[in-house]
Design a protein around this nucleic acid. Sequence first.
RNA 1: GCCUUUGUAGCUCAGAGGUAGAGCACUUCCUUGGUAAGGAAGAGGUCACGGGUUCAAUUCCCGUCAAAGGCUCCA
Length: 648
Amino acid sequence: MKINVTLPDGNVREYEEGATAMEVARSISEGLARNVLAAKVNDEVRDADRPLPGDCTLSLLTWSDPEGKNTFWHSSAHLLAEALEALYPGIKFGIGPPISNGFYYDVDLGDKVLTDADFAAIEAKMKELALRKSVFQRREVPKQEAVAYYREKGDEYKLELLEGLRDGEITFYTQGDFTDLCRGPHIPNTSFIKAIKVMSLAGAYWRGDEKRKQLTRLYGVTFPKQKELEEHLAMLEEAKKRDHRKLGRELELFTFSEKVGQGLPLWLPKGAALRERLVNFMKTAQEKSGYEQVSTPHIAHKDLYVTSGHYEKYGKDSFQAIKTPHEGEEFFLKPMNCPHHCEIYKSRPRSYKELPIRLAEFGTVYRYEQSGELHGLTRVRGFTQDDAHLFCRPDQVKDEFKKVIDLVLKVLKALDLNDFTAQVSLRDKDDHSKYIGSEENWAKAESDIQEAVGETDMKYVVEYGEAAFYGPKLDFMVNDALGRQWQLGTIQVDYNLPERFELEFVGSDNQKHRPVMIHRAPFGSLERFLAVVIEHTAGRFPLWLAPEQAIVLPISDKFVENARDMVRILKDSDIRASVDERNEKIGRKIRDAELAKSPFMLIIGEKEAAEGTLSIREHGQGDLGTMAPDRFATMVNERIEAQLSGDR
RNA sequence: GCCUUUGUAGCUCAGAGGUAGAGCACUUCCUUGGUAAGGAAGAGGUCACGGGUUCAAUUCCCGUCAAAGGCUCCA
């Protein structure tokens, strides 16, 4: 019997029945066979050495395929487990999956406490075992046998995993002396794993449940070539250099103080200038789009959050109430702006004619985050949202959504964040019971969102079951310069709050109707957004956003006065500039300005002073020649305009 | 909150059971220099905080606080 194998290029080849993917690879080329990690057979990823099931489509997976990498790292997790079992006999195993940058294995080490001093020994053991070229042997076993195996081994974690599996679908993989319950697939043998690094150590609750035992999680990363490991480590180094916490200190953007409290950033003048630019940028854009600015206090009466439902849901995780001394009334720091905005909406009767009403506020909110969760500016306890709430009629949802998407795209463009994905989060397909709001409204909003998104040219994915209980949403996940993904802007439809606050408008039928509310924040929070911008640009902010756009460098003190005059001229053209008045040589001033990432260095000496010009040097570019200050200002302002209109 | 690690000058980091060091930054002086570090001198630390062990602790032990990586959570 022969079978027909269809390859990705459409070629159909004939093989003997029982041929493996590896044999197919070998028939194409030895080189390919050496690199095959796994095979995708009719869309299922399988071991390359398993016989093909008959006529099928086949793609051979190598390191360059995401599934190939996953398989490689999954097998590496098994190798890590094998090494750990060899080094610490009797330990128990949780799970060991591949992740986006490597893999981990959760283990119960009993009384043994692992520290990073043990990494070298673990790596050495893994390398030793990898060289044995152990094959990953697949074996289908009856459930009883699997249970018996782990009973004897005394591994309650694997037994628990087995409970969730049906008889007949259980497979074991064995490489060397290590056998693991595993669906597979795996790479052909351990010798593919050439470069190994144990990265870090962490506690991880069994099955992510903090009431259960905390296991030791070991993270590792492996590669088929030593060079790739080195590149990976270099990439991590680069990420460290761009870390917004480090750049924030170096560029004097923000700081933290133990006295003020953790998770509460203090913005330094230059950082505050950045915030100011972002806020102004957004305000201008919003004014053009029919938003109205409002302003609400930082605290509110407990009743507000009882009405909104947040008190019940989050009260215990929130900060403690502030009580008035005589009446004992309870107030809370505001964790979000929407309840306040609902009250603004309610301040008078509303007609269908005035909808949509768009209330915007750069509202600073406070949330209690667990101490271990705080991280630089991306996770803080006090932050400012570029928040707005759109109150509209159900028939306006699509249009409003569309406008918000345009606004978000404009923001991302101005910040050069061109690599992003939009995620549409809809209801669980099978279970509509956990969502509030009418079936009719949901169905309409869900199709509105998808249509609105579909009418743009951006990439998007639809996730079912990811909607909030109160409405569907659209999130923007931005990939930064290092390929890391961040959730920034968000647009959410909300049926819950209009209900709870009993919001109404009078329709053309003279009847009362319930408006739909849309929450939206293109930046998300200024803090997190700036963190991403800092890391994405490595501190070289777009010209329009840079705290200082130009620094004037006099050749010697004789020209300080001329330099000051130049700054005055530039400021008249809205260029942010200052003078480096230090008694230093020009080389030094240039070096420091380059390190401070000043976009332009304007050098003024005898020649320029006589001509009334400036010698222009651009950050990272070098000398651009001389220019009169007004011409320089025009050039800068033209560039800014181009950046803001996304036209470059 | 939990697990592992860390906390020495403004920053980056050495160091040792006998009360501290470097580079950069800072101050003063000299130098007035043309596209990535001019020279000299000086000042600056309760070695995170609180206990304990010790003749002696910044160093060893415990606790607290803060930070890093992860887990959990995220209106």
